[in-house]
Structures are given as C-alpha cells and as structure tokens.
Design a protein around this nucleic acid. Structure first.
Lengths: 350, 350
DNA sequence: GTTGGCACTCGGGAGGATAGAGTGCTAATC
DNA sequence: GATTAGCACTCTATCCTCCCGAGTGCCAAC
C-alpha cells in the first residue's frame, strides 16, 4: 500500500474520528478537529483517493466517509500505535484477576470476566489445549457397582475426571489393578500420543479377565480423550446491545444468535489459532476485522485474541469480540495485559 | 373474582387473541373471531367492566384492550385448560432428552437445551439442591505436594470434587488416614448436617499432628460445603430478540442484562421455590407474571418453573422465561412434560 | 340486559417541505 | 503539479400536516 504521509494521517484521523463519534466524517470536520495545514478541498482529493484504494467508503453520496474493513486493517497493521495502560487501569485489572482460586479453570473464567468488564465487549477464553500435556496420575475410583470415576492429573496442573460405566461384577481390587497398570505405563505420555491401542496394551499386564478388562480400558481411554476436549467461555453478550453499532435489532439478533452456538465460536477460534501458526506469525495477538470473520452475523465486529501459556507446550486463547468501530490500540493493550497477568498467575499452578 | 360466564369468556378470548396477534383486541374483532351471540356493544360493556376490575387495559384511548398482569393471572388460575402435547411433540422432546449421558449434570443441561428449543424462549434449570443428600464416599487424593483432590460421592448419584491446598509435608498415608476417618464418620449424613465441628470431630481419631490435620479438615469441610452450592443453567437468551415483545432495544437490553447475572436469577428462582413451599402450594408448576417478578427488566416476561426430583429429598427447578404474551397452556405442558421425562431419566442415576 | 347509532379520540402512516452536511468538479492560484 | 475557493448538486434526517380507520363511551330505544 503506497500512501504518502498526509494520506496516512487522513486515514488515521478518519478512523479515530469515526471510532469516537460513530458519524461518517467529512472533510470539513476533519479540518476542524485536526491540524492539517491544508484546506478541506485538498483533503477531499485525498479522501477520493483513499476511497479509490478501498480504504474508506461512503454510506451514501452526501455523507462523510467511514473506514472500510481494508481501512481498519491498514490502520491496525501500520498506523496505530499501541499505548500502555495507565497504572490505574493496570491496577484495576490486576485486582480482579488476583483473586485466589484453586483451579486453573476458575482463573480463566476470572480473566474472561475481567476482560469483558474492562473492554465493555464480549470476551471469550478457550480452555488450555491439553494435547501436549502428559499424564501424571490416573486413578479409577469405584462409585457404586457398575459406575466408576476416572480421575486424571495432568502435567499442566489440571485435574480432569469423568464418570464412566463399568461392568457390575468388577470389584475394587480389580479396578485398582487396572488403574495401576494404566498409570504405570502411560505416565509421562502426552495425551495426543495416547490411543486406544496404547491403553489396551497398558492393561495387558493385569490378570483381569478379558471382556471385563476391555470395557474398562475403553472407558479409561474415553475419559482421557475427553480430558483434552476444548471448552470455551463466553461472557458479556448482552453488552453488545448497548452499542450504537448494534442498534438495529436484526444485526443484534444475528450476532447473539451466532454467539449462542459456543461450539461454533470455539471452532472458529481454533481455526484462527491454526492459521496463525501456519503463517508462523509472531504477533502477540491475532485480529480479524469485519468480513474477514467467517462467522455469520459478525460482519460488523472485530475479533481479537491473544495466546496465553499454561506451560511451554500448553496454551489457550483469550480475547474479545467487539464492534469493528472500536479503539483498537486500547483494546489490544487491555487484552495483552490481561494475558500477561494470566500467564503470571498460571505459573503458580504448574 | 366474581365474573359471570360471558365475562370469563370475553377475558379468555382477549388473552387468546392478543397472544396470537400481538395487537390490542377490540370489541368488533372479538365478535368476528368468536361466536358470541351478542353484539359488539354488549361486549364493549363487558370490556369496560373487565377494565374496571383491572383485568384488561388500553394502551391508549382509541386502541383495543390488552390483558393486564392481573388479567393474565386470572386467565392462568381459572380460565385456561392445559392440553396435552400431541404424540409428535412428545416424541420430539423424548428424542432430545434420551441421549445417553453419564452424569446428572449433562442430563440437566440436555433438558434445558430441549426446553429452550421447544418453547423458543429462555430456559433455565437449577442444579439439584443437595443439602438433603448424604455422603456415600469421600476420598482425598494427593495430586502433588501441597495439593489434593477431594472427591465426594453423594447419595443422589452425584459426584463432586474440589482441588484444595494442603500442607506440603503431608504424605499419602496421612492423607489416606484422614480421608478414611472423615468418610467413616460422615457417611450417611445429609450435607446440611455437616458442619466444621462435625468434620473436626471426625478427624480426631487419626494420629496426624494437630495443625496439619486441622488445615486438611478445614479444606475437606470447604469441599463439602461447595458440593451443595447451587448452579444455574440458562440458555437461549438470544431468542428473546426475535420476539416482537422485545423489539424495543431498551427492553431487550434490560432483559438480557439482568439474565447475564446468573447468580441473581438463581437467587430469585430459589426465592420462588421457598415461597411456594411456605404456601404449601401443591401445583406442579410455579408461575410469576410481569410485575410479580421482582427482577429488573422482566416486567414484560413471565417466569414458569417446575420442580424435578432426583431423589425423594433432592430436587431442583427447571423452567422458562418468556414474554407475558405467551401461550401459557402450551408452555406449561411443555415444561411439565420435560420435567416428567427428566424425572424418569434421573431414576437411572440413583 | 341488550342493541344500534353516533360523536369523539388517538396513533400511525403518507406526503411534502426544508435544512444541513457533504460531495465532486472546475477554474484560479501558488 | 499540488492546492485552493467556489459552487451546484445530492441525499438523508427531521419536522409538519393531514387523514384514515379502528376503537371507544354513551345514549336512547328495544
């Protein structure tokens, strides 16, 4: 994108003004608010050029200009400068996140809540991707005849469990043997290297009769697989209704309708993450603007996520869905700071 | 409420018509749609009377009438007849609920989902009130130095657990002793009869040194108390945006804002439940209409809940929040049927 | 108690005028 | 070649006004 300095400034100014006023910005008001040392006619020429490049657009002939998706993209990539949060804002966030909790899940929920409150938008977090974490313990507890609880302690300091059905006849001792055998042979293995075959092999060393054994092993395997399933936490959907950007009921409905399908959103976040990895992007955050987002109803939104780390190999995402017309520099630094604090707190768990 | 038969019919017809058309209903359209053997002038007199009694009201002078909260109340209490669901509708619900799950929580979430889908409104469920269930097992598993998992199996077929911090020096054996002692002495006790003192007494029989012991006992106690905390599952908030009743963005925002505070909603449901118990109400459902609901922003809503039973003494609520202007007889029978199926499924867990 | 008739009320939609912000273009100027 | 002043034009948003129609309350008659 070849833009001379003034055109960059003009685009910058248009984005800033539009974000703060929610009104299409015209050449005259641009002159009034900013100190361009040229006349409005000159800016009109520049604006015509920017429009030609697809960076800004007119809602209709006699209105001012608003940034297009491409315009926001240019702004985000090259024009804006991210400013640090004030100490006061930092303190506010720290205070909310530093409430002591016993489980990582709680910590993540806290962070999500904080992010929604501080940005005023929808926030979301993915649970850690545990595929790369490994088993530290696996216990099977009999609950009652035919039912047991598989408890797994993972290297990332996470505890998972699942109630499973087991054959009625099995006694405590047999279960102990099986769980001992599994634990012994799978401890230290990353979850994504554990297959049904691995588990079955692990169980062979016991003297529990074949068909009973097999069912328990299968259930243990299922429990392990379930342990690395991803969860998503979404919060603050209702805040979107307060934004002028979604004052049209139709848009608001589409947006919330899509967000209500949390599985779909989770899938999308994953896809973003994977895409970023493939590109080898080393940005500390990912951002999608407007039509770049392939989820229905999010055309007027931007989607910003960052990656938190529970351990070196176990990470997840946390981020925000807000209107395209947002204060990017601010929101990005908010997310970044929350991520930073989250990472710090997570160290305590591992 | 003294109403002659025709006035009852008029009120009934007004509610029906208003529910189905969302337009204030006038005397003339009433005659057209229903076979009253009187003239519109007569109905006008009746309607004036009904208005005088506070059962219906006019949005403005020259509009038809709409039911007031009191009118809906009368309708719900005395006028409507609840019809059974068609076999087809029943099948639809059964199909959704009968997906096999291993935990009660999943079952409840399923039911909530089903209810939101079938009614098209917001559905909610409270987790079972476990105060009256009793401990069947309590195990403490060492996770790593300083951290343990308290696992509780409750009589209602529910498994709860909590990660707790424990003194670093404690070894497996000591923990086993403590958990064995607690289990031995508390098994069979309803959760609401377990106090910190009970737990501490239970722990006395071990030879673990005092200050360490005390901390573990406290954490075990905290885990037990956490086990009977109530959760609420809310679903389908976005559906409200499709209703003409909430086409005003302001109302929609207030509504969703309130619903986003799930703790508050949970508190309110509890309050409803308690009030119903005190009154010794034996209805199979509870209903609050419009202003009867003390939650902010729900003036245009009705709140219907039913009580499901996990065991004789362990119950919870499931229900719907929809517009006042709803097909009560239908929605009530939907809730009732979901509740029935839920109860049936729950038997499998206890 | 019921009915037909009638004057009255009020919201909502259609139509029309107007203001105002903004544009593109042209011709003159730096 | 870039910049500027000037101007005609465009389009929306807003405000009025008008009018229709559904609905009402009331009265006199049945």
């Amino acid at each position: 994108m070849q833009l001379d300095n003034r055109k960059k400034e003009v685009l910058h100014a248009i984005v800033d003004d539009y974000v703060s006023t929610n009104e299409p910005v015209g050449s005259k008001s641009l002159i009034e608010r900013h100190s361009f040392n040229v006349s409005s006619a000159t800016l009109r020429n520049d604006m015509a050029e920017l429009e030609h490049l697809g960076l800004i657009e007119k809602p209709h002939t006699s209105a001012g200009r608003i940034p297009s998706d491409k315009g926001y993209r240019e702004y985000v990539n090259s024009l804006m400068t991210i400013e640090e949060l004030t100490p006061r804002e930092q303190l506010e966030i720290e205070k909310r996140i530093n409430t002591s909790v016993d489980e990582v899940t709680e910590l993540i929920k806290n962070a999500t809540h904080t992010l929604s409150e501080t940005t005023g938008f929808v926030s979301l977090a993915m649970s850690p991707r545990l595929k790369k974490s490994f088993l530290k313990q696996l216990k099977i507890l009999m609950i009652e005849p035919g039912k047991a609880l598989v408890v797994m302690v993972l290297s990332a300091g996470v505890v998972k469990d699942k109630v499973v059905r087991i054959p009625n006849f099995l006694n405590d001792e047999q279960i102990m043997k099986i769980s001992g055998a599994i634990e012994k042979s799978l401890t230290g293995k990353p979850l994504d290297e554990i297959t049904l075959v691995t588990v079955e092999t692990a169980g062979k060393s016991t003297d529990v009769p074949e068909p009973l054994l097999k069912q328990v092993l299968y259930e243990a395997y299922a429990a392990i697989k379930q342990a690395d399933e991803l969860n998503i936490y979404l919060e603050g959907e209702h805040r979107m209704l307060s934004l002028p950007d979604f004052s049209s009921l139709g848009r608001a409905r589409d947006l919330l309708g899509t967000l209500s399908d949390s599985g779909m959103v989770a899938g999308y976040v994953n896809e973003m993450e994977n895409a970023a990895r493939e590109l080898g992007s080393d940005d500390s955050y990912m951002i999608r603007i407007g039509q770049e987002i392939t989820l229905e109803g999010l055309d007027d939104c931007s989607f910003i996520t960052a990656t938190y780390n529970l351990t070196d190999s176990v990470s997840g995402n946390i981020g925000v869905i807000g209107p395209k017309r947002m204060l990017y520099s601010k929101v990005i630094s908010q997310i970044d700071f929350v991520k930073k604090k989250l990472n710090e707190e997570m160290k305590k768990f591992t």
